[in-house]
Design a protein around this nucleic acid. Structure first.
Lengths: 189, 189
DNA sequence: CCCATCTAGTATCGAATCGAAACCGTATTG
DNA sequence: CAATACGGTTTCGATTCGATACTAGATGGG
């Protein structure tokens, strides 16, 4: 179905966003991949701040990721820390400097404006359709899905108090954790 | 509006498509940019097959585009031809070999499948909303919009016969031209 | 416990990307 | 005709990127 209008629109939007991302990152004096990595680190939860997760998420090779992280570290934008349990894995964190760098991204005002101009009902219905599309796509491939904890099959909300935990690891999750991207994310069927 | 669900979904889909494009192009033994350039050349009409148009469309610098085109030419996938009217501009065309290379791209079956699983009515309504979103975004920025001739303000359908022409250049357009991407594209108000 | 195997990550190499800036030839404007 | 703008190319240095080889830690038999 190469000529489906929805297919074309999504492709076109993706291309436009990519083109803009390129220009935005170089305006910040930084390669696109660095920008993506910093943004990912800001959005990732504590299970997902490893090189392997970034490799899967961004579709790069581990060599590229390793090299880029080394560079970002030398610039003082991220720090690394070995995992205590599995001493092979490295965990990365944004430094205050790195977080500030991300924070000063103005985003795309034009984009936000165009979005705000749409009627709320249309936004919601389109979001519902795209959500199903994304879910269908994720289910059709066997790889990792990447999503926030709240939408995960493993997410457990504890009745009684407002606690929440991951059903996979059993660990409690803060609100911040539950709204971040997790590499163990699994779509409910 | 950083937490608008539609915003997040479109961003997420764009990221997934980009990640897939990376993997697909390297599976074809080619850098992503080469892949994008070949695809663009296939989709561009005769006003838009210049380095400058590709620079604008893909968000790269002209140096990068020039260098990549040189490489693609040396591999025999594209040919160049100077413009007769403006002797500064270069026009590029896919060779049969280059076209064949693009044609053997299997596309993304998983994606098509997920798309086909959606009800046609939902697809259409989501497409309508995304179309308005894209139009709003294009109108909000002063740059080029890039679109097919048929949707352009300059597009003139000649009543009586089935001829069609560009109101900007006055030249007649074939059906193939009218469904290709044009850099002079202008959204009707 | 030991060995094979797997996995996470790093190091290295070569080809190519990529942006910045300088440069050339052509068009356009005054 | 001069000044300026514009389309493209070239060159340079930093970085990406994939491929491959490698290290170290985990894991799973026997």
């Amino acid at each position: 179905m190469p000529h489906d209008p929805l297919h074309q629109l999504v492709t076109c939007l993706a291309r436009a966003l990519q083109s803009e991302q390129r220009q935005r990152s170089t305006a910040a004096g930084m390669p696109t991949v660095h920008w993506q990595l910093l943004n990912y680190l800001q959005a990732a939860n504590r299970y997902s701040n490893t090189p392997q997760a970034m490799t899967d998420y961004l579709g790069l090779t581990k060599g590229t990721v390793s090299q880029s992280l080394k560079l970002l570290e030398s610039r003082g934008w991220i720090t690394r820390q070995g995992d205590a349990r599995d001493r092979r894995v490295m965990r990365f964190f944004l430094t205050p400097e790195g977080a500030a760098l991300i924070a000063e991204d103005p985003g795309d005002a034009t984009w936000d404006q165009a979005l705000a101009a749409l009627p709320a009902a249309d936004r919601e219905s389109a979001a519902a359709t795209l959500g199903r599309l994304l879910r269908g796509w994720q289910q059709g491939r066997d790889g990792l899905t990447f999503g926030v904890c709240r939408s995960c099959e493993h997410f457990r909300r504890q009745s009684g108090n407002d606690g929440q935990r991951c059903g996979l690891t059993g660990e409690p999750l803060s609100d911040a954790d539950a709204t971040r991207i997790c590499r163990e994310h699994k779509q409910p069927a």
